[in-house]
Design a protein around this nucleic acid. Structure first.
Lengths: 145, 145
DNA sequence: AAACTAAATGCAAACGATTTGCAATAAGGA
DNA sequence: TCCTTATTGCAAATCGTTTGCATTTAGTTT
């Protein structure tokens, strides 16, 4: 989703477009291929707009999540990671354990999963299919060392 | 895995079988079908052995994780959830969002996933396929209300 | 353009989950 | 039974995140 579209969505939802928010959106956009922490977002935001504060970052992340514009997960230590949602059609991700880069792929065995849950009278709400490993760039770097 | 086997593994790894540990193993075994928090484990442990302490629970959970006997994830709020690893062959889980119950299924599209990662020069380390929803019992309960 | 008002911010302090330092205790071999 | 070292319990520290409150600001209204 383009930044302009994100700004429009916030505005339409009745939120003010403060400098802190514009800066956060632009940073999120910049990192749209990577899962990042709130702290990393803050650091980047401060480059545009030094006054930005971690509290504000968190508050706006919560807000974006509420608008379903932001995807939140947690790393193995329980720390939260964020990324703008993908607006394209259904797909899943490969996440690099080294640099956090996220690559997408279209495959999803949803049909099969539906059959399984029906067989168990399990009301399927969500499914999560994610691959973890080392992306080609990081793998190259490791081999060079 | 049977409790006795777990105890054996700990002992073999050079750890002492304290009452706190025995009590934790038995509680984990009791909850082997459910993801539970450290707090819930403590509460149960204290029924057997009232002196048990949250610090000890955490320390032993870390230890069991290190022995690869324990599986750790986090819920949507980042709180950690634990469960003994399954010793049976490769499978995935459906997790009830209501009661935490975990059911297993054998299906896994690993072949397909391998093809995808190879195509992307992505070195696959781990994959996660998990279904979330409402289990048949909870669904029944909800409908009764 | 100045005034207004509710929303948004920044700070410091609170928070909950988890970890750590340290002195006291207990497991399991000698 | 004794001894040594691992383990425990407690309190305090830590980390990421959230909240209360006074101040500031966006975006409207005059």
């Amino acid at each position: 989703m383009k930044i302009h579209e994100l700004e429009k969505r916030m505005k339409e939802a009745g939120f003010k477009l403060t400098n802190q928010r514009l800066s956060l959106l632009s940073v999120l956009d910049k990192f749209s291929e990577t899962m990042v922490t709130a702290e990393e977002l803050l650091t980047e935001c401060q480059k545009d707009y030094p006054a930005t504060n971690i509290t504000t970052v968190y508050r706006n992340l919560i807000l974006l999540e509420g608008l379903r514009l932001l995807h939140k997960t947690s790393d193995s230590k329980g720390k939260s990671l964020y990324k703008l949602v993908c607006s394209d059609e259904h797909h899943h991700h490969m996440v690099c354990l080294d640099c956090g880069k996220v690559e997408s792929f279209d495959f999803c065995p949803l049909e099969e999963l539906r059959k399984i849950t029906e067989r168990n009278n399990f009301r399927l709400v969500e499914h999560n299919l994610e691959l973890y490993g080392v992306c080609s760039e990081c793998d190259k770097k490791i081999n060079e060392e």
